[in-house]
Amino acid sequence: MSQVSLSREEAIIGQLKARFPEAIEETKIDRARRVTIHFEKDHVQEIAMFMRDELGFDHVKGVAGVDLPTQKKIEVLYFAGSYSNAEVQDFIVILKAKLPRDNPIIASVVSVWESAHFHERETFEMFGVKFEGHPDLRKLLTLDNWEGPPPMLKDIKFPEMGQR
């Protein structure tokens, strides 16, 4: 794998870094066609806009949350992909932002990527992440009067169901 040229991946990272020198915290090329970018959470909409308009990443494949209880953080992941730009069609760019665990708030990207609508709702429900500016942030999957904590957090256990 190491022989494969990673110039396209580096080009994307280079463009993002040139545009947002302070917002991009860390970048990583996982392998060919996979790029991970850690960014500062306040810049999510600008970065999304740049990705869509300049780089051609016109949709998100999903929005995921990852709970990191040891660091007291919740990470939000955006899996951006492209249909229109043939150059980067095979890429998945993973944008990651870390939010504080006790008050996870981030701006919604629905105004940029409409495809994030249901994914953000799901992440809100499963991790309690509030997406500010989301047009319709309601519970989606769990019981309609689910009152418990967001179920996907690591320290939430359901002992009555026999979980360890």
């Binding site: 179920p151 026999g162 979980q163």
Partner: peptide, 9 residues
């Protein structure tokens, strides 16, 4: 799925 949080066993 017996140990899931949203299942009626």
């Amino acid at each position: 799925f017996h140990d899931s949080y949203s299942i009626v066993n």
